[in-house]
Every structure is written in structure tokens, then in C-alpha cells.
Amino acid sequence: MSLESVKAHFKQWGREQDVMEFDSSSATVELAAETIGVIPARIAKTLSFRGEEEKAILVVAAGDAKIDNKKFRQTFGIKARMLSAEEVLEQTGHAVGGVCPFGLKNDLDVYLDVSMKRFETLFPACGSANSAIELTGDEIFEYSLAKEWVDVCKDWEGAELPEKVAVRS
């Protein structure tokens, strides 16, 4: 159901056919990078946090970025507390491993972390543990109906990025 809701979401931009489905798992940053043949940093991961009034906050960040608790608190005014797998499914309609900011079950606030701005394109999941789509940062912003770009991550600045990645055959 989740993959279908994402494809239905992309239909409004005529992009539903661009959703890629894989024979292998893309449920983690590492698996997705290996499956697609890109560096892990180019996987756009969606992190789910407990917001105010039981409404989740979604932060989409580069695959090599980690939440900086101090920056998160300064930006959102609350402590960064991730949702449980059950809460993620309840709030987003997507199971862990396929969480994305598209085709959501509920109207949630989506924010994009600046860690993704290093890349021309990134690969967010599409609602299942074996799907993705290649999008620019601007497209992710538009298609996710994001509120704004934020700076709430660490450990990605100055990271060495290889030119190419060996694709598994």
C-alpha cells in the first residue's frame, strides 16, 4: 500500500514511472547505495521525530549525516526524539526501511537538511524496502511539500567524496 501511495503522489507531477523497484533490499543507506551504485551520502534518508501534539516531524538528510542534538533543539525548540518503528508506520504510513516524505498517511511537517545540497541528485526511498527515485534537491523540496531547508545535522561537512563507485554486477 505504501509504494502505491507514493506512486499516486508522484502522479500529480507525471513522475510515477520514475520510481525504481529493485530485486534486492534498499532498506538501509548502505544497502540502497550498493543496490543503486552510488556513495551512501547520496541516499536521502528520512528521519522521523516526535514533534509537538503527537505529530511527527520528518527530516530528510544525506546518507552520511547524523542529527546534531544541539542544532535540532535550536531549530525546533524541542529535544530530538526519534519515533519507534510502530509510531513511524502509524504517522507516515511507511514501514521503516521505506520511509520517505512522499505519499504520507498524515499531513506532517517535512524539513530538508542542508547536507543534501552538496549533490546534484539524491535517491530517497519510495515507501518500500526495495524502491527509490532519483531527484534533485529542489524536486525533493517541491514533491515533499517541505517547509524549509534546515541545518540540523553533523559529520558530513568536509567528508571526502569519491568520484565513482564500483557497481556490483
Rank of each mutant, 00 (worst) to 15 (best):
Val59Phe: 05
Pro101Lys: 15
Glu53Val: 00
Cys153Met: 08
Ile67His: 11
Ala129Asn: 15
Glu87Trp: 03
Val165Cys: 03
Ala61Phe: 04
Ala95Gly: 11
Ser25Pro: 04
Leu112Arg: 11
Leu58Ser: 07
Ser2Phe: 06
Lys70Trp: 14
Ala65Val: 09
Leu122Asn: 07
Leu47Gly: 02
Trp156Pro: 00
Val99Lys: 11
Val60Arg: 15
Ser5Gln: 11
Val110Asp: 13
Glu52Asp: 11
Asn130Phe: 07
Lys7Trp: 12
Phe102Gln: 06
Cys100Val: 04
Thr46Ser: 10
Leu58Gly: 04
Gly77Asp: 12
Leu122Thr: 04
Gly51Glu: 09
Arg168Thr: 08
Gly77Val: 10
Lys55Met: 03
Ile140Ala: 05
Glu4Lys: 07
Gln17Phe: 06
Val165Gly: 03
Ile133Asp: 08
His94Leu: 02
Asp68Ile: 12
Val59Cys: 02
Arg168Cys: 00
Cys100Phe: 12
Lys117Met: 07
Val6Thr: 13
Ser131Ala: 08
Ala61Leu: 06
Val110Pro: 03
Gln91Arg: 07
Cys126Trp: 05
Asp68Cys: 09
Asp18Phe: 04
Lys79Trp: 06
Ser48Val: 09
Asn106Gln: 13
Ser5Cys: 05
Glu86Cys: 01
Trp149Ala: 03
Cys100Ser: 05
Val38Ile: 10
Pro162Asp: 12
Gly51Met: 11
Gln74Leu: 06
Tyr143Ala: 04
Glu86Gln: 14
Asp23Cys: 01
Leu58Met: 09
Pro162Arg: 13
Ser24Met: 10
Ala159Leu: 05
Arg81Asp: 14
Gly63Val: 03
Glu90Ser: 09
Val99Ile: 10
Ala85Phe: 02
Asp155Thr: 14
Ser131Asp: 08
Leu83Pro: 02
Gly98Ser: 07
Ile39Phe: 08
Asp68Met: 10
Gly127Met: 04
Val152Asp: 06
Leu108Pro: 05
Asn106Thr: 13
Asp107Lys: 15
Gln12Asn: 13
Asn69Glu: 15
Tyr111Phe: 13
Ser5Trp: 14
Asp18Cys: 06
Met1Thr: 15
Ser26Pro: 00
Asp109Tyr: 05
Lys117Ala: 07
Thr136Trp: 05
Asp155His: 15
Gly37Ile: 01
Leu89Phe: 11
Glu52Ser: 11
Ala62Asn: 08
Phe123His: 14
Val110Ser: 07
Asp155Gly: 09
Ile67Lys: 12
Val29Ala: 06
Ser128Pro: 00
Val19Cys: 02
Glu87Gln: 10
Lys79His: 13
Gln17Ser: 12
Arg42Asp: 07
Ser84Gly: 05
Leu161Gln: 12
Gln74Ile: 02
Lys45Ser: 00
Thr136Ile: 01
Arg73Ser: 08
Asp151Met: 07
Ser2Tyr: 11
Ile133Glu: 08
Trp156Val: 01
Asp109Ala: 05
Phe123Val: 00
Ala27Asp: 15
Leu122Phe: 13
Gly137Asn: 10
Gln17Trp: 11
Tyr111Ala: 02
Ala44Lys: 11
Ser169Met: 06
Pro124Asn: 13
Gly127Leu: 02
Glu86Ile: 04
